[in-house]
């Protein structure tokens, strides 16, 4: 009994310490200012490409399919109440408020987060990070900061791309296939979507998820055990911890934004 209490306490302290270390880590990499601005922008653009642009395909394809499925499901229920025209409203609200940020963040953790962790971990294993240090160049500034910032910029943008792809996919199914009139599809959507409560709240969610997922990914890479096994485990942790954090935070944010207290 006593022993399990002790190990519980020790585990909690370890966790607190890790959170503290991760916090100091990200603050340090952002606070240390770049020496040469032009080069930093170059590094950022390169990372925006590999983290953001290369994630576009998976985001657009998934968004389209999710929009199509939502339309099919939504139509079959709404038609029972004779309000199949509202399918556009259903699509836009569920995508902007929930599915856009959440599913994009989950896909992002799997696609970009894991590759960030593996890349940084491999840099550590091949002594590239030590090499920067030895040259008097801070690896936090050079390697971590551009990747973190690129993630925080990319994910919210990808989330809107996802929502747009979803709405187009949903329109193809409901208007093109199920025969919903396109006038009611668009006008009901326009009437019901509120910029502040829906678009901005979705954006806030996406930004929060972006910070958390990218933070976990770069930290896991930087702190991993520099062996093939260690990098594998760190990559898995990025995806698992990232996904759990997204879902838990989504509940908290949704409760705060849309809950009636």
């Amino acid at each position: 009994m006593m022993n399990s209490l002790i190990s519980l306490g020790a585990g909690f302290l370890d966790w607190l310490e890790a959170v503290g270390r991760a916090g100091i880590f990200i603050v340090q990499s952002l606070v240390r200012l770049p020496v040469r601005l032009g080069e930093s922008i170059n590094l950022l653009i390169r990372q925006l490409y590999s983290v953001g642009v290369l994630s576009l395909v998976i985001i657009i394809v998934s968004g389209t399919f999710i929009g199509m499925v939502l339309s099919l499901q939504g139509y079959s229920i709404l038609a029972k109440f004779g309000s199949s025209g509202s399918v556009g409203q259903l699509l836009a609200l569920s995508l902007l408020r929930e599915l856009g940020p959440v599913v994009t963040a989950l896909l992002f953790a799997g696609r970009a987060g894991s590759s960030l962790t593996a890349e940084i971990g491999l840099m550590k294993a091949t002594e590239q990070l030590s090499s920067y240090e030895m040259m008097g160049v801070d690896p936090l500034r050079r390697v971590i900061a551009p990747r973190f910032i690129a993630g925080v910029i990319s994910l919210p943008l990808l989330s809107f791309v996802f929502s747009a792809a979803g709405i187009i996919g949903g329109m193809l199914v409901s208007v093109g296939w199920l025969g919903v009139s396109d006038g009611s599809f668009w006008s009901l959507m326009q009437q019901s979507v509120n910029f502040d409560t829906d678009v901005i709240n979705g954006l806030i969610k996406a930004v929060v998820f972006a910070v958390v997922v990218t933070w976990i990914a770069v930290y896991q890479g930087y702190e991993c055990v520099p062996t093939s096994e260690g990098i594998g485990k760190a990559t898995t942790r990025t995806v698992v911890l990232g996904s759990l954090a997204i879902l838990a935070l989504d509940f908290i944010l949704t409760a705060a934004m849309f809950g009636d207290f």
Binding site: L122, M123, T126, E127, Q128, S131, M134
Partner: peptide
């Protein structure tokens, strides 16, 4: 320390070239 390191070169076991 970073200034001193500018005067130190190190050849790592793996080469550690930036990939």
């Amino acid at each position: 320390l970073y200034k001193v390191r500018e005067k130190i070169g190190m050849l790592f076991q793996s080469g550690a070239l930036f990939s």
